[in-house]
Amino acid sequence: MAGKETWKLASDKVSPILTGGLNAFLSKYWARAPTAGLAMDFLENQQKGNLYFDHFAFRTFGMNGCGIDSLASTLQSFGYERRDNLIFKQKKLNAYWFAPPVPELPRIFISELQVEAFSDQVQEIIGKYTKQASPASDHMFLSGSLGVLPWKTPALEDFKALAEVSEYAAWTLVNGYSLNHTTISVHNLSRMNEIEDLVRGLEGADFKLNSSGGVVKTSPDGGLRQISTLADTFDFEFEGGKVVPVSGPYIEFAQRLVLPEFSHLPEDQIEEHHRRDGFEQGNADKIFESTQVGGS
């Protein structure tokens, strides 16, 4: 993955602390998501110019101050703006996305498990860990960028108990605040910049794509189209030294179509703000299932 050092964010319009922190997340992500690195290599071999990130995504526990706001507070202090709220009733999740201060940076999508919707046993398990992290809840951005869990090493029996009722909960217990996935902007590719072409290219190169709800997830308005790989697994050492493979990160690809009111613009005049923004609940619901592999 010779290009890995070039897969970084840069902007002289925001604090270097913000770009440095986000790049620290990326550094840990590439180490745990080999499929993502291979996909980036594949695209770079086809591509003229840079690859652009559409968004980064994080998972959290909505308990003891360890939910969305534990990351949002840091992001908002650097200029990110909170946008739409998305609710996933079946998965018992809540989410917001955050618009970046400058176009060069990715959108941020943060979800949280609605812990209170689960049994007392599940709440007790999650509470045991989030209570430990709660005093440092304002520093979860730092936890994730360093690649360290904000709570003690989990017990395997706790992981298994959570996995029985929520794949999301089990994933978050062992991955903490690390990146759940990154997303590449499809419409900014010089080749395969239509989602179907990219699907053919990736599948032809033997990448395994998430087929839940169909390989291509399309918003009702047709303006947002998304695909994702299946998550990689990695060996996690639980309390007591037991090592078990668990689900890790994956990579997504998003195509944002030009909004109808800007369809008259010549292609060379189209900018990101002319395209469909935000997220779509139905798409995201199926993208979440990219981590339903391996130890989860």
Rank of each mutant, 00 (worst) to 15 (best):
Q114K: 12
D138P: 00
G295K: 04
F78R: 02
P100S: 12
R276T: 06
A10S: 14
T233C: 11
W171M: 08
I184C: 01
S145A: 13
F234P: 04
P154D: 09
D285K: 09
F207Y: 06
I108H: 03
K48P: 00
P154E: 04
I227Q: 01
F253Q: 06
G20Q: 08
D138F: 13
G20E: 05
F279M: 03
E44K: 11
F253E: 00
E44D: 14
N64G: 00
A133G: 00
V244C: 01
L179T: 05
G20M: 08
S263C: 03
D268G: 00
E289S: 11
S15A: 13
E237A: 15
K242I: 12
V246Q: 08
R256S: 10
I227R: 05
Q281N: 13
H187D: 12
V174M: 09
P16Q: 08
D277P: 00
I108W: 03
V165E: 07
D158C: 09
G282P: 01
R83F: 00
S190A: 12
A24R: 10
K48T: 15
F236H: 10
A133L: 04
A163M: 07
E194A: 08
S290H: 05
P266M: 11
F253S: 06
A117H: 10
K4E: 14
V293Q: 02
V174G: 07
T19F: 07
S137N: 15
L209P: 00
N50I: 02
G295S: 01
V215G: 01
E167V: 13
R83T: 00
G278A: 02
L51N: 04
I108K: 04
A170G: 05
Y250F: 15
T182W: 00
A31W: 03
E112C: 05
E124P: 00
R256E: 11
N85D: 10
S219L: 09
N175L: 10
A2W: 05
A39F: 11
N45S: 14
E196F: 11
K128T: 13
F253M: 03
F288N: 05
D120L: 14
R59I: 11
R275N: 06
R275S: 03
F61W: 11
Q114T: 09
G127L: 07
G240E: 06
I126H: 08
M192T: 04
V243P: 03
L156G: 07
I110T: 10
Y80C: 05
S296G: 12
A39L: 11
T6Q: 14
L26A: 10
Q132F: 09
V174C: 12
G144I: 09
